[in-house]
């Protein structure tokens, strides 16, 4: 089931229990170049329902480019992308037109960016930022928008008394919570987290990670988290994919990757962390 690309020289480990289900996300042979730079070299990714896939690697390894493609913000030069969504035809999402991609992204994929300016409208209220996502899905009742924005913010452990404060008036940790509330407002099939705690101090980082773990536990949200911080990946991920120079060098269960890394680069990463 899981494509083990020889091109990636990936070492596929024993699958976790979650992998017994059909995958929710399948990407195969993803290639992307920026000029002479090959950002992704035929990457294969499989994500199973309810699991957290961590993607680690140094800067320039291609992990954020891959995440942008999962969010249909960027298109590859080559490759296929399938999402198993209820009631949706199984097709390569990269063949969809721009409008269909945008609608699919708005309805089924949530994302939390490292930089809140990318994910939030800083001069709108926090509740408005969440409501925007609901408005895109066609909700037109003001009372329902208020209630659902409140519910999402509450689930993200954002203080409801500040729900009408502008993100520009909030701390970095609070801004990430607003992003998270916006991302989960429509209960997405896939939640993408791009370095969600980078730039936050350690105590705030821990709180945000706790919130993410609780949400994942309670709602069984499928998550893909990208980080260069192995501590974050270790805390969050069920499975880990290690990337370097646009290739997947190793992937497997989080515990195995951290306790018994096989690839030289992974060993360097893990030992550098330790």
């Amino acid at each position: 089931m899981t494509p083990a690309s020889s091109m990636n020289a990936a070492l596929e480990r024993q699958p976790p229990r979650l992998m017994l289900a059909d995958p929710i996300l399948t990407m195969t042979g993803i290639e992307k170049s920026f000029g002479d730079v090959r950002a992704l070299r035929g990457v294969d990714v499989t994500v199973y329902p309810g699991e957290v896939l961590g993607i680690v690697g140094e800067s320039g390894s291609g992990k954020s480019t891959l995440l942008r493609m999962m969010n249909l913000e960027d298109m590859p030069d080559r490759g296929e992308y399938h999402l198993a969504l209820p009631g949706q035809e199984d097709l390569n999402l990269f063949t969809l037109d721009r409008f269909s991609r945008r609608m699919l992204r708005a309805r089924h994929i949530g994302i939390v960016y490292q930089n809140p300016h990318l994910g939030l409208r800083m001069n709108n209220t926090s509740s408005g930022n969440v409501a925007e996502r609901l408005l895109m899905a066609g909700e037109r009742s003001f009372a329902v928008l208020r209630a659902r924005a409140k519910e999402s913010l509450d689930a993200s452990e954002f203080p409801i008394s500040r729900m009408d404060a502008r993100p520009s008036e909030l701390s970095g940790g609070m801004q990430q919570r607003v992003q998270l509330a916006k991302a989960i407002a429509l209960e997405p099939a896939l939640l993408l987290l791009d370095e969600p705690t980078t730039g936050l101090d350690v105590s705030v980082q821990a709180l945000v990670l706790d919130t993410l773990k609780r949400l994942q536990r309670e709602r069984r949200i499928t998550m893909v988290i990208v980080s260069h911080d192995l501590g974050v990946i270790r805390t969050m991920a069920d499975r880990v994919m290690v990337m370097r120079n646009g290739d997947v060098v190793e992937q497997g269960l989080a515990d195995q990757i951290f306790q018994d890394p096989q690839h030289e680069y992974t060993q360097q990463l893990v030992h550098a962390k330790l």
Partner: peptide
Amino acid sequence: GDADYGQLWLTLYEQLVR
């Protein structure tokens, strides 16, 4: 072209909130 008018609705939402 996309009939993407969510931001106009958001403007009205913000006026109602504020």
